[in-house]
Amino acid sequence: MFLNKMNMKKINKQSNFAMFMVLFTLVLGYASCKKTDEGAGGQPVITRVRLISKTDTLKNVVHRITLDSNLTYDETRQVTFDSTIVAGRLNNQYAIVGENLLTTLSVSFNGLNVNYNPALLTDHSIIISIPEQTPYGTSQSNKLVVTTKFGTASFDFPILQPPPVITSFSPVAAGAGETVTLTGTIFEGVTKVAFDLVPAEIIGTPTKTQIQVKVPAGVVQSRILVTTPGGTTRSAGSFGFKSLLYDDAFPTGWGSYFGYNSTRDLANTLHVKRGTSAIENTFTDGYGALQIGYNGSTIDVARSGLTAIKLSIYGGAGIVAGSKVQLVINGNYGNAVPITLTPGTYTDYTIPLKDLGSPTVITEFVLQSLGNAVPSVIYVDDIGFI
């Protein structure tokens, strides 16, 4: 009996010791994991910023090797890809590489905090995306700043200006020396505006969203190009006309007849897109039309190099959101193109001739109402072919 009690005490002491060791190991493991989770600690360091994707890796490059004046041969070497970059672009993803980054609390570019993915955070890298609203340009600090639980690291890293964006220009056609206003975004630091290859004079002081230029001599029809520190952008729409149908008046040969189930004022001055007048057309029937006939020599599409028709329409009284007209060339109603009108403002339209039946000559122009209210009014200006 006595021996059994002694053995029980011994067993209890061993069990208590074993339990203590288990608890000690668990505590030690927790402390070790906590230290690992927080990295090694210490001041953060940024060593470089690199691209996430290697899609722009150079392909194998052929190098010409010259051993002496009489012997040369070619060899192909794999070019090593270096993903390190020295400047960033908006809406792109990068990896910040360094040391002691696991406890990152914030990342900023030029003072703007940006999002990062905590699930991808390691002691040596941070995955970030540079958002569209990030400040850029020479007036900025050009600093990447990472703040962790143990300090702050700063790194020289400018954000590059994006290319300019041209949203519109007005007027859509003008003579030499007249002013054209370009509207868009990211026009900061504009250095050049050109009509195709012909430079234009910039007048006044450009803003981030607007530039005014004088039309160079000799420009009939062209694209407009804007150059800034971010690059060069070409306008989607074309300036000018190769063949003009209506400006402030009709050229010789046009206007032998003018429409059906509608009335019109060919010298209207109420809503004018450019110049001194525009065509005011009042539909007196839900399917009435502004019809302009040509009574001279036909316009040869191929000889003139025409590919599209361009015009501007203002939605007047009776025109509501969703109101439409259809454009018809040469009476080809089987290839009519519907146009949605905008009430209270001019809208520019460019319609490829192939969508209108690919005419080889131009003899008639029609804008027909598609069930609009009666009466309803449209104003039409700057009709021509490009």
Results as ranks from 00 to 15, higher is better:
L225V: 02
F250S: 05
G231F: 12
F239G: 02
G230M: 09
G253L: 00
T232C: 10
A249I: 01
S238L: 12
F250C: 06
V226L: 06
I224E: 02
A249V: 04
W254F: 00
T252N: 12
T252H: 07
A236Y: 08
K242P: 06
F241A: 07
A236Q: 13
A249G: 09
K242Y: 11
P229T: 05
T252D: 14
T233G: 06
T233E: 15
P229S: 11
D248S: 12
P229E: 05
T232A: 03
L225Y: 11
P229H: 12
G240C: 06
P229R: 10
S243T: 15
K242D: 11
L225Q: 15
T228D: 04
W254A: 00
F239W: 04
R234G: 06
L225S: 15
L245I: 15
R234E: 15
T233L: 11
L245S: 05
F239E: 01
P251M: 04
T233S: 12
F239L: 05
K242W: 09
G240T: 10
G231I: 00
D247P: 00
G237Q: 14
F241N: 02
I224H: 03
T252I: 06
D247V: 10
A236D: 13
S243V: 13
P229N: 06
P251W: 03
A249N: 13
L225N: 13
G230N: 09
R234Y: 09
S243Q: 11
P251A: 04
G231D: 14
A249D: 12
Y246R: 04
A236R: 08
D247K: 08
T232Q: 11
S238K: 09
D248E: 14
L244P: 00
G240H: 10
D248P: 00
Y246P: 01
W254N: 00
A236I: 09
S243P: 01
A236T: 14
F250V: 15
G231K: 13
T227W: 05
L244E: 05
L245Y: 03
S238V: 08
L245W: 06
T233I: 01
R234L: 10
R234I: 03
A249T: 12
F239A: 02
G240F: 09
P229C: 14
A249W: 04
A236V: 12
G237V: 01
G253V: 05
G230F: 12
G230P: 02
G253M: 02
S235C: 08
R234S: 14
F250P: 00
W254Y: 01
D248I: 04
Y246E: 03
V226I: 13
A249F: 06
W254Q: 00
T232G: 05
I224K: 03
K242E: 11
T228Q: 06
F250R: 06
V226D: 13
T233P: 01
W254L: 00
S238T: 10
S238R: 08
A236C: 04
F239Y: 05
T252S: 15
V226G: 12
G240A: 11
T228M: 02
G230Y: 11
K242H: 07
T252Y: 10
T227F: 01
T227K: 11
F239C: 03
S243N: 13
I224T: 14
P251L: 03
F250N: 07
L245Q: 08
T228K: 11
L245V: 10
A236P: 00
P251H: 02
Y246T: 03
F250Q: 07
T252V: 08
T233A: 15
T227Q: 13
L245C: 04
K242R: 15
V226Y: 12
P251T: 03
L225E: 15
